[in-house]
Design a protein around this nucleic acid. Sequence first.
DNA 1: AATGACTTGTCAACTTTTTTAACAATCTTT
DNA 2: AAAGATTGTTAAAAAAGTTGACAAGTCATT
Lengths: 210, 210
Amino acid sequence: MKKQKVSDAVIHRLPRYYRYLDDLFNKGVVRISSNSLGDKMGITASQIRQDLSCFGEFGQQGYGYNVAELRAEIAHILGIDLGHRLIIVGAGHLGHALLQNFDFAKAGFQVDSAFDISPDLVGTTIRDVTIRSMTELESYVELNRPIVAVLTVPQNVAQPLADKLIDLGIRGFWNFTNVELSTAVPDVFFENIHFVDTLLTLGYRISHRG
Amino acid sequence: MKKQKVSDAVIHRLPRYYRYLDDLFNKGVVRISSNSLGDKMGITASQIRQDLSCFGEFGQQGYGYNVAELRAEIAHILGIDLGHRLIIVGAGHLGHALLQNFDFAKAGFQVDSAFDISPDLVGTTIRDVTIRSMTELESYVELNRPIVAVLTVPQNVAQPLADKLIDLGIRGFWNFTNVELSTAVPDVFFENIHFVDTLLTLGYRISHRG
DNA sequence: AATGACTTGTCAACTTTTTTAACAATCTTT
DNA sequence: AAAGATTGTTAAAAAAGTTGACAAGTCATT
């Protein structure tokens, strides 16, 4: 096992590996070689073996990989088995949709609570999660120490809110606002979902096709 | 102006340039140099000039760039001024949230219509867009020829639906299902929004911090 | 037990991409 | 007209990503 820094490209491929292995697992496939997995995923066997080698040795010469085992290993690498606790800040349409539909547990997260400023929403319950008032946010986070926050709030409050949450111990943001958040605090991570950007990219490709 | 293929990295930076320029424009800033823009964005002046050079010459020696002009140029490059027509297929929570909140016009798209299978939704109107039945999808697309489809449907119907829509002339997919769509037809583009993947990536970083 | 067919983990080479630095050309300002 | 500023472009440098090759080890069969 190499001990180099794991490159971003590899990290971003991990969820994809997991997706395919989960699929194989659910279909009852017991073993798979890097070759056949590569065929399925449209990448080379060499790349799969190299990617996996960043994290350990999970296969066996002459046999390949045990699907269930490799799936579990990748789940572990991704921290899916840790059940990180998470809060949702902003329960408007998007926050509501996530709360209602998204399978956080499957990604290894447990939804602790949700918060919104609107009195109409406060007190309502979606999928066993009760929406609390924003005024309770600070004390709640201090007491319960969730580690990740989903931000589905208006743009203008995003950065100050993030600063406050970082102060309170939040270390990861799943950021749906179209603002680029930043902080001087180390070991805080942002995953920015810039909807607009992806649609603009699509617009570029459509406009320049042919 | 170079005539090489524009790299993906550059294309993905374009929306970000646009966002910053739009902001400057709204603040009434008239001119900006690659140097000060680079400072704002946290990248080198050199990279900005190199990126822009893929598309033309938009600045002036000794002066820099006119903000309004450069903003308009990038808007043009991204096709924002073309007003591509778009349909939304699947008006469940996510489709509904997009329809209600997302500013498609700002990204250069015009929402033609939305479709859903549920009789409860068909006939209702959101922001001037009436939700039609899925049974009308085919004839509608044939007649009105939208170019892009937003897919917010269940996973299992995503690929066959995409195939059908490609047949009918759709050339771009803003795909919110967690399936990797593909086609043999050339000049069809997919922007896959894999929510889960980004959250898993965040989970990885949280788990491995420090 | 021996043989042959497979398949891994790793190394190093290779390729591609991305970034940076440098500078002639030329515009703005005074 | 001179001084200062800033571009577009080139080429070098650095970084990142990918691939091919193979020793070493495992499995299946006889």
